[in-house]
Design a protein around this nucleic acid. Structure first.
Lengths: 166, 166
DNA sequence: CATTTTAACATAAGTAGTTATATAAACACT
DNA sequence: AGTGTTTATATAACTACTTATGTTAAAATG
């Protein structure tokens, strides 16, 4: 008795399959944070890592770097400020901009997370290379291919080939 | 000026990367539905396809087949019933169960969608095979590998190797 | 067969974001 | 300098689910 209908749908359910896997990985990540007694929310991870690396970024910049919406960063930013991990000052040259930085406590928390990140990195790297072809590399290639031509356009073309000009 | 921080994070951000790609694919799918003037919501897709294939399933069964929560199916089911696409009757052998089926209109709508699905299938299949290795196959392998040993456990092991027993 | 446990479904509340919209600052043009 | 347009951020409302919980029916057990 097979109970995974996505297997039957195959590539047609590519999106659903990707979503399901991403949720599995992200929920595992949340558990890992718990294992390591890290009291920051997993959803803040990419923003914290960005601030660790870049030191100073404003809201729109962060949203571009991370591929999230501007309101998402705005919200995370408030939450992180409430936690005392991030502070922000109005940009001097342009008072519309809000420049984010880690607070000393934020830097401390990130430093405590670094060994955990190293371990996740190693585990994920090994996972992706477990098969004959590197999954992470395929993933990036797929992203790139879709950026060049969307699934929407590919589908329109496939439809033409199948039904209009067969 | 590179603006994708996930590239810098590499495998550490595997979950975020998968999520971003799944959202891209699913939002493309929504656009495709629009292109084809199909007036059913993309989120119903897997359930409609399941009912098309299996004819009769109950709520819990559907949630298992699709990997969604039972309340999710419950909600979709109500929405689809409101649209007149799905009907349900109480199971005779077990009055707790609700057996879902497509209505005649539901079957009609699904039949209208079949050519579109064929086109998506073809486009997605070509996309996945565009590279030297089949992305969809890697994806399934990765799922399977994680089902056998979670990223959480892999990370614990990697941590030991890196810091405890180096 | 009375009672506890388990299973199926519905409903409520919560979450991690999104899109839409408002506000205010900066810029471009006259 | 005044006016219209664009940009940065905040806020509100929405979405597609989730977890938690309640209700009722079925099954298991003493």
């Amino acid at each position: 008795m097979q109970k995974d209908f996505l297997d039957e749908l195959g590539e047609l359910a590519l999106g659903s399959r990707l979503k399901r896997l991403s949720e599995k990985v992200l929920s595992d990540a949340a558990n890992i944070y718990q294992d390591f007694d890290v009291n920051v929310q997993p959803k803040w991870f990419t923003l914290l890592a960005l601030l660790h690396r870049k030191l100073r970024v404003n809201v729109v910049e962060a949203s571009e770097y991370l591929g999230l919406s501007q309101p998402a960063i705005s919200q995370f930013c408030r939450q992180l400020a409430d936690e005392g991990l991030v502070s922000f000052v109005t940009c001097e040259q342009d008072s519309r901009r809000k420049v984010l930085t880690l607070t000393p406590r934020g830097r401390e928390e990130v430093n405590k997370m670094l060994p955990m990140w190293q371990a996740v990195q190693k585990a994920a790297e090994q996972l992706c290379r477990e098969f004959e072809n590197d999954f992470y590399r395929s993933l990036r290639k797929c992203e790139k291919a879709l950026a060049e031509k969307s699934l929407q356009q590919r589908t329109a073309e496939a439809y033409n080939e199948l039904y209009v000009r067969p």
